[in-house]
Design a protein around this nucleic acid. Structure first.
Length: 803
DNA sequence: GTAGGGTTAG
């Protein structure tokens, strides 16, 4: 009000001569300032500097425009120097300088200018906050961003829509979607502009919340806000991510109507969307119709062709890019390299020529390209080449490590690499590497390690991912921790075939046949089609629970309902079941009916059945085939020799043992291990290497005493042959699994289950002892042997004494 | 008339 009055006053008074003169100068200055601004905007900084130096008179605007010219072209020290010399500094001068540092990602400098500004008594405003927030967003500086958020609340700038937009974007880019959502939802609806909507949408889309992104797009239009060239490239990837082609087509229609059709960002996103929705034809046609050869659009199509397995098409696109003299970039090459990761060996020649091209063109120094090279070599099993590329990389990121970890054939090596990645610092695991490491932990049955990876993943704040959740379900079942597997399973919003199958197989291997079949029923009710693996789980469950009729029914439905040809694994389960339930003839009949070549698993089942039924002839056939299939396996020798002994054919038994010796085949030594406090404690039979050996042996003695009182009788048929009775009993007492359980009783806290893993099948005497131990000590003992899990609780075992 | 906020390709 005051200012208005003052202005009016000036306007009504008669202008003096001096005033007219100064007005003329001002108008001259004004037009030069505008010229300076134009030069700055078009990036002609040197010309701007020359003009600035020549100007006889300068005002605030002149100085600020020149600071902007330097600042936005990255000449930060020039900007700073000019800022220092500027006699008419104002808030805009500060903002211009800070914005330059923010755009240049000089975060320390930018933030210290931000604080310095305030120390010098100059308050920041909505523009300052906007710049700094954008920098926090693009660098993922969550803590700084939160600090700035605090400033906006204290100074009430959080009512400025530009600042709010910056906050939403910052939280979105720092993967804090719920914070972004909270700010978005609590602001008055009428204040949201299209930047607000687009920022929220982008937050959803980038963080894997595709459906929410699509919903956000609909709400935006419903509220009457027009989407623009920024909105479309954000919503389209969300449609692609969930294969929502119909929604994608609607968005496409909206684009055509809105006139953003020719925008290169929009167009490339449309092509990518169709390609992701497996409509390569439309994608190809759109690419053909484009007025310019846009490398991004071509790249998206190459990527999708690779993903859909059309390698030839991808390579031909790549060739055509060459022919059209398009600039191949660091995004084209990784997709092309992906073609070779899983291709035939003949293709490696082309792969080598692409690698040469990369070296020649200097693209080897691009992270994306090197990552793809590491990935390709690792997946092809040429780890030395992969490591060579990896070690030469200056800046390794989580993708580089993932390529190395996932491609590695050895699980142990994979975990070591993962630990190394964590130890070298600065790199936090993402969903891809988490899923991969969880699978490796599962294969090695490292529950504690898997749990740590799980905890880390929760803390990381990544949204739910199907592949991580599936790996978790699988890891927990493979480590015998069904409660945890169930907890993850029931927390999952979407489940796929892999999820259900992991649970079905998991229950089966943990002796929970009923739950396994129940889960199968639920899966079918949920409209999920079973596959080859699902049926292995189901038949395994049936065979271990003696459910002959059910097994036959499932086996039939495999072929008749789901058109899946049964494989050797399925036959092995059924043969095992018949053998065990006493129907040897059926087992043999099934063997002869097999459409596929029987493998070692099938012959092992036949051998076990023959042994149980004393069918030496079939046993001989099975054992001999097994000796050929697995020349280093001692099992067929031992089992057949035992069958001879049992039939009183001692000489043949001895011959077989001699043959075994002459072929240098020995029984794989039994080994049991317990995981504890980040260490694996392993025990062999009569092992005396452990640090707490004395304690462990006296615990074994106590154990044996207590369980004998409870009714346990040692079964010396499982002991070595050439000892007297007492020696045999002692030998039994110090079997690896008994040492492991004794250690577990000493080291595992009361109430927690003792988890043991054994490389071979558990010995019959140990199995019986474990049952007693679980009762006498009131402990849940979980023993995973080479075949399945045994949950010993209160004197009985989940396997129903069959393994 | 000077300063801030949203976008595509692995």
């Amino acid at each position: 009000m005051l200012r208005l009055k003052f202005r009016n006053c000036r306007l009504t008074s008669t202008p003096s001569r001096n005033y007219i003169h100064s007005n003329a100068v001002r108008s001259n200055l004004h037009s030069t300032n505008l010229k300076l601004g134009d030069l700055s905007k078009s990036g002609r900084v040197e010309e701007a500097r020359q003009l600035f130096d020549k100007m006889p008179e300068k005002d605030e605007y002149t100085w600020n425009t020149m600071i902007v010219a330097y600042s936005s072209s990255g000449r930060l020290s020039d900007a700073k120097e000019l800022f220092r010399r500027n006699p008419v500094k104002n808030t805009i001068s500060w903002n211009a300088l800070i914005s330059g540092h923010c755009k240049n990602r000089s975060k320390d400098e930018a933030l210290s200018l931000f604080w310095e500004m305030q120390l010098q008594g100059r308050s920041f405003n909505e523009y300052t906050l906007g710049s700094v927030l954008k920098m926090c967003a693009s660098l993922g500086l969550l803590q700084r961003g939160e600090q700035i958020h605090g400033c906006t609340v204290k100074t009430a700038f959080d009512s400025d829509v530009g600042v709010v937009n910056g906050l939403i974007d910052m939280y979105g880019q720092c993967r804090r979607v719920s914070e972004a959502e909270y700010i978005f939802k609590t602001m008055p609806g009428e204040r949201r502009n299209n930047v607000t909507w687009t920022s929220m949408l982008t937050g959803y889309s980038r963080n894997g919340f595709a459906y929410k992104a699509i919903e956000c797009f609909r709400d935006m239009r419903r509220e009457g806000t027009q989407p623009n060239q920024f909105t479309f490239p954000s919503v389209l990837p969300a449609c692609g991510a969930v294969c929502a082609r119909r929604v994608g087509v609607q968005v496409h229609g909206c684009i055509v109507k809105s006139g953003f059709k020719t925008n290169i960002f929009v167009q490339s996103a449309v092509i990518a969307m169709y390609a992701k929705c497996r409509d390569l034809e439309t994608a190809r046609a759109l690419l053909q119709d484009m007025e310019v050869d846009d490398v991004v659009s071509w790249n998206s199509l190459v990527v999708e062709c690779v993903r859909e397995g059309f390698k030839e098409e991808a390579l031909s696109l790549f060739r055509r890019m060459h022919e059209r003299d398009m600039k191949i970039d660091e995004f084209t090459l990784p997709s092309v390299l992906n073609c070779f990761a899983s291709s035939r060996t003949e293709m490696m020649k082309i792969a080598s020529s692409v690698h040469c091209l990369i070296v020649k063109t200097g693209y080897g120094s691009y992270k994306l390209v090197s990552n793809a090279l590491v990935d390709m070599y690792a997946k092809r099993g040429t780890m030395d080449s992969a490591l060579k590329v990896f070690e030469r990389m200056i800046e390794k990121d989580v993708v580089s490590w993932t390529a190395l970890i996932t491609g590695n054939g050895s699980y142990e090596e994979a975990l070591k690499l993962f630990c190394k990645m964590r130890a070298e610092g600065g790199i936090s695991p993402d969903q891809m590497v988490t899923a991969s490491v969880l699978s490796a932990s599962a294969e090695l049955t490292l529950l504690e390690f898997g749990q740590q990876v799980h905890c880390n993943h929760i803390k990381s704040g990544f949204p739910a991912s199907l592949s991580v959740d599936n790996s978790l379900v699988s890891m927990y079942t493979k480590c015998g921790s069904l409660e945890d597997a169930e907890a993850v399973f029931s927390s999952m919003e979407t489940k796929d075939l892999i999820t259900w199958t992991a649970l079905i197989v998991g229950y089966a291997k943990n002796g929970k046949a009923k739950d396994s079949l129940e889960a199968y029923k639920l899966m079918i009710d949920n409209g999920v089609r079973p596959d080859y693996i699902t049926f292995i789980g189901l038949l395994f469950a049936c065979s271990h629970a003696g459910l002959t009729e059910e097994a036959q029914r499932y086996f039939e439905s495999m072929r008749t309902v789901y058109r899946i040809t049964p494989g050797p694994e399925h036959y092995a389960c059924l043969i095992d079941l018949y053998g065990r339930s006493g129907d040897f003839a059926k087992a043999e009949e099934l063997l002869n009916q097999m459409e596929v070549e029987p493998d070692a698993t099938v012959w092992k089942a036949i051998l076990a059945a023959s042994r149980k039924h004393g069918k030496i002839e079939t046993g001989e056939r099975a054992a001999k085939t097994l000796m050929e299939l697995e020349p280093n396996n001692a099992v067929p020798y031992v089992l057949l020799s035992n069958m001879y002994s049992a039939a009183g054919r001692q000489e043949e038994a001895a011959n077989l043992r001699r043959l075994m010796k002459s072929r240098n085949i020995s029984k794989e030594p039994g080994c049991s291990w317990v995981e504890g406090r980040g260490r694996v404690h392993s025990f062999m039979s009569e092992d005396r290497r452990h640090q707490r050996m004395v304690e462990i042996y006296s615990k074994v003695d106590e154990m044996m005493l207590l369980i004998r009182e409870a009714g346990y009788e040692p079964d010396v048929s499982f002991a070595l042959h050439d000892l007297d009775k007492e020696g045999k009993e002692l030998g039994l007492a110090y079997h690896s699994e008994k040492l492991a359980v004794a250690f577990g009783l000493l080291a595992v806290p009361d109430g927690a289950p003792i988890r043991i893993i054994k490389n071979l099948r558990v010995c019959g005497d140990c199995h019986s002892a474990m049952k007693y131990i679980s009762r006498v000590y009131s402990r849940h003992i979980i023993l995973r042997d080479s075949n399945c899990f045994h949950h010993f609780r209160d004197g009985s075992c989940s396997c129903g004494d069959y393994w």
